[in-house]
């Protein structure tokens, strides 16, 4: 393991690099260094396999005939590959189909969960970005009484663990009669999140204000400047933030689990969890569950395949939850 931590500068990239300045014979590149480079690649590939392995097992199970789960437990490829599991969780299989009767399959309405997830994500993210951008612009550019105090309060709010706020927020949503509604699930995120405000404020502050000032001189009001200059100039930051916020909302579990338990509004994470809890015949309906999880992973896979660089670069702004 001692050889893994060689730094970039430590190993000459070419023989020319390794040539001493006095023009004498090149220093032989140590076999130790070459070995460590080779070993490093092995470690990287190993971690890539560790990352993708469990996902592949899920795909394999989803493609397997549920009757073969025991016999094929240790195989890496599905035995008797079939799309039947996907078809039945999506609801493409006729309820009278004899294959549905013979085993203890759980019941899940994947389409409904998908629709709920999309609705929750849109409702939580679109207004959040819009209102946070407006607030961020005010904090970054406009002077008003109380700006520092309010901004400090926003900052302090990020210190509060979310579970502390979940209890009073749950009661508030309940008192509003919004339990098991989209607006109840989305409300705490819809008007602002401190992270969105900080992120955009930082982005706005990092660009020069000349353009905005010349627009002011030309008589444009602040609203014109915001919509015509600030938003277009920061398209890319807004896209990054939208992606992060959408991913957070899409993967959110605790809050939708508290206020959106009814089947009609369950988002995908909550629906998959209650599908698991159905415990049909003692053990969960694994092949159906894995079909659901694979369908749930597809949006992520699409995002990574088409916008890999953008995703990787924007995730450095995120935290841990």
């Amino acid at each position: 393991m001692a050889k893994l931590d060689l730094k970039t500068a430590d190993v000459p990239k070419t023989r020319e690099d390794a040539r001493p300045p006095d023009g004498s014979a090149p220093i032989p590149i140590h076999s130790r260094a070459r070995f460590s480079g080779w070993f490093g690649y092995v470690v990287l590939v190993l971690f890539a396999i560790i990352s993708l392995g469990p996902i592949w097992i899920a795909v394999k199970t989803a493609l397997s005939d549920s009757g073969t789960l025991f016999t094929s437990a240790s195989s890496l490829l599905p035995q008797h590959p079939t799309l039947f599991n996907f078809e039945r969780v999506i609801g493409l299989v006729n309820p009278a189909d004899p294959r549905l009767q013979q085993t203890s399959f759980g019941k899940v309405d994947f389409y409904l969960a998908l629709k709920n997830s999309v609705a929750f994500t849109l409702l939580a993210v679109v207004p959040q970005i819009a209102f946070s951008a407006m607030a961020a612009y005010a904090f970054a550019r406009l002077r008003f009484y109380g700006r520092r105090v309010i901004f400090f309060l926003f900052l302090a709010a990020t210190m509060i663990p979310s579970v502390v706020l979940f209890i009073p927020n749950f009661i508030l949503i309940k008192d509003l009669g919004w339990l098991n509604t989209y607006q109840g699930m989305a409300a705490p995120y819809a008007l602002m999140t401190p992270f969105a405000v900080f992120f955009l404020r930082q982005m706005f502050l990092s660009t020069p204000r000349e353009l905005e000032e010349s627009a002011l001189i030309d008589g444009a009001c602040y609203f014109t400047i915001f919509f015509r200059i600030v938003l277009p100039v920061h398209r890319s930051a807004l896209a990054t933030l939208s992606m992060l916020a959408a991913m957070n909302a899409w993967n959110d579990f605790f809050w939708p689990f508290l206020v959106g338990r009814d089947r009609s509004v369950q988002v995908m994470a909550v629906a998959i969890n209650s599908f698991r809890a159905q415990q049909a015949g003692g053990t969960p309906d694994w092949s159906g569950l894995m079909a659901c999880t694979v369908l749930g992973i597809i949006p992520v896979a699409v995002l990574l395949i088409f916008f890999g660089r953008k995703v990787v670069e924007s995730l450095q702004y995120t935290g841990f939850r």
Partner: peptide, 28 residues
């Protein structure tokens, strides 16, 4: 007017902050 505009800009976020962060913190 700069400060009036600013209040209009932060009004929705401020409402969200009061309703779902500040007030719940004290209520907890």
């Amino acid at each position: 007017r700069e400060s009036y505009c600013a209040w209009i800009f932060i009004a929705p976020a401020l409402l969200g902050f009061f309703t779902f962060y500040l007030m719940p913190a004290f209520r907890a």
